[in-house]
């Protein structure tokens, strides 16, 4: 453990070489520090300018992988006030943690309680890996453990017109790990993409009008019991919160 080496690369290609040599990226470190760190080495990605990028393009907003939740939330809020990703990131954890937790570290470690998972999946976010120019669908990446392990995330892009909608995290107190999170992306008056994270089988995505989404979610979602709450209670809570996220009579809740 104490033989852990540290590297401080300044470019994406140096990072990729270190990654291919078997060293692991360090972004916010909030996940890594809780592990046994039985690793040969870590490379800190915070000096790579491309990984700190925050930009508005024709196709949407690009967030570099080393950008913190705090910085991502304020940039996204300025571009589209009240959007599902900025609302989710600004409710996660606590202020000093949000100042450290990174986009890429959260996407890669993807804990069950992560506030980033549902809004990225609902909004159709795509990822870029270092050394590749291909867009990878976030929901596909999220479901593929091997893909997560074998790739260095350089950025994520979110289409501006799909981040409008609503977000909910089920917690006991403000600073708490959510039992489940819900994100609804409104694509039109009668077409929504809804992501539920924290279900028994992880992330689930439902598409359609509000009635179709609620019907499918009610029939197919299930949760594990947790913190004194039964499976049935968590499911009924998820469905009633989901109903609340949809605008009444098809109108938006913006």
């Amino acid at each position: 453990m104490n033989d852990l080496k540290w590297f401080f690369p300044e470019s994406g290609s140096e990072c990729l070489n270190l990654f291919n040599d078997g060293f692991q990226p360090h972004a916010g470190g909030t996940f890594l520090i809780k592990t046994s760190l039985k690793l040969s080495g870590l490379f800190d990605i915070n000096s790579v300018a491309d990984y700190k990028i925050l930009k508005n393009t024709d196709t949407g907003i690009v967030l570099g992988s080393a950008v913190s939740y705090t910085d991502a939330a304020s940039f996204l809020h300025a571009a589209s006030p009240g959007n599902i990703i900025s609302v989710a990131l600004s409710q996660a954890a606590s202020t000093p943690l949000r100042n450290r937790i990174s986009i890429g570290g959260s996407i890669a470690s993807s804990p069950k309680w992560s506030d980033i998972t549902a809004p990225l999946a609902a909004s159709g976010a795509v990822l870029r890996f270092e050394g590749s120019s291909e867009d990878i669908d976030y929901a596909v990446y999220s479901a593929d453990r091997k893909m997560r392990k074998n790739n260095l995330v350089s950025s994520v892009s979110v289409p501006l017109d799909s981040i409008k909608g609503s977000y909910y995290r089920f917690t006991f107190t403000g600073f708490d790990y959510p039992t489940f999170t819900l994100a609804v992306s409104k694509r039109s008056d009668d077409f929504f993409v809804c992501a539920v994270n924290g279900a028994r089988d992880g992330l689930r995505v439902f598409k359609g009008n509000s009635d179709a989404v609620i019907a499918e979610a009610s029939q197919t979602l299930s949760f594990n019991s947790e913190r004194g709450m039964s499976e049935d209670y968590i499911l009924s809570r998820a469905i009633s919160e989901l109903r609340r996220l949809f605008p009444k009579g098809g109108a938006d809740d913006e």
């Binding site: 360090h26 470190g29 520090i33 450290r100």
Partner: peptide, 8 residues
């Protein structure tokens, strides 16, 4: 601000 216990 950061939690110094969560920073390597």
């Amino acid at each position: 601000t950061v939690n110094s216990c969560m920073v390597l």
